[in-house]
């Protein structure tokens, strides 16, 4: 990867579900170290775009590069952390077993220590041996955050990460995201919780029915009025 290569480079990307174009000719460049909020109404294509970035879906057309490489390369995937709609942890395993599993899958040299460290950072160390099925919703969400962050990803893909989090969990997630930004990681998150997202975002992109209608630095107006972008770019 060259020093100037963006973290994410998308050009003329199309994705169809049957005959329905979920994404239409998306072109997007996200620079390393930035935090991009992907905005749009329900069905705009945010989740589809994030899933393509994560290598979970293949686009029908277009080119996508993550750190200059194909997102399905093993080395590229090792640099990506994803927090989707599902928490991505196993109910029948304990919190510690879950984190050790993912630490091992990501090839971390000291999986057990990393797992314990992240349980502590997400305030789950006192329930490390409890099965996830016994956890409350908030505890599961914090474990999911630990799972996504455990390998120190350079690119974080977050699909509505603040949804159904309580105040404490939101503060924890924001501090972890800020920490990730401070160490140079890139964040791409879709969200409807604009106030929480705007505190971190350096850039925003707006999708409208599969088309990218705005991409650029976060407009200063959005700090006062998070819905400014929707109103200004025609979604009302």
């Amino acid at each position: 990867m060259s020093a100037a290569a963006p973290a994410v480079q998308i050009s003329d990307l199309w994705k169809y579900y049957g005959d329905y174009p979920a994404l239409k000719s998306i072109g997007l460049s996200i620079h390393a170290g930035s935090c991009l909020s992907l905005l749009g109404r329900n069905g705009a294509g945010k989740t589809t775009l994030l899933r393509i970035l994560a290598g979970l879906l293949r686009p029908q057309r277009g080119d996508l590069r993550i750190f200059g490489h194909d997102p399905r390369d093993g080395a590229t995937r090792a640099r990506i952390g994803i927090l989707g709609h599902g928490i991505g942890v196993y109910e029948e395993l304990s919190a510690l077993e879950n984190l050790k599993l993912f630490a091992n899958l990501y090839g971390l040299p000291n999986a057990a220590e990393s797992a314990k460290d992240w349980l502590k950072r997400t305030y789950l160390d006192n329930v490390s041996d409890s099965l996830v099925r016994e956890f409350s919703r908030g505890m599961r969400q914090r474990l999911a955050v630990a799972r996504a962050f455990i390998h120190g990803p350079d690119l974080l893909l977050l699909d509505e990460p603040f949804t159904s989090l309580d105040d404490r969990a939101i503060a924890l997630l924001q501090s972890l995201l800020q920490g990730a930004l401070n160490r140079g990681a890139t964040i791409v998150m879709s969200t409807h919780q604009l106030r929480e997202a705007m505190e971190l975002s350096t850039d925003v992109a707006l999708l409208n029915r599969g088309k990218l209608v705005f991409q650029g630095p976060r407009p200063v107006e959005m700090l006062q009025d998070p819905t400014w972008l929707y109103r200004t770019y025609g979604e009302g």
């Binding site: 899933r51 994560a54 290598g55 979970l56 093993g74 080395a75 995937r77 090792a78 990506i80 994803i82 989707g84 709609h85 599902g86 928490i87 991505g88 942890v89 196993y90 109910e91 993912f102 899958l105 990501y106 090839g107 799972r147």
Partner: peptide
């Protein structure tokens, strides 16, 4: 359950 398959596919495991 919990979209664990997505988490596995996203990991660097081939």
């Amino acid at each position: 359950g919990n979209d664990c398959l997505d988490a596995l596919i996203c990991s660097p495991v081939p």
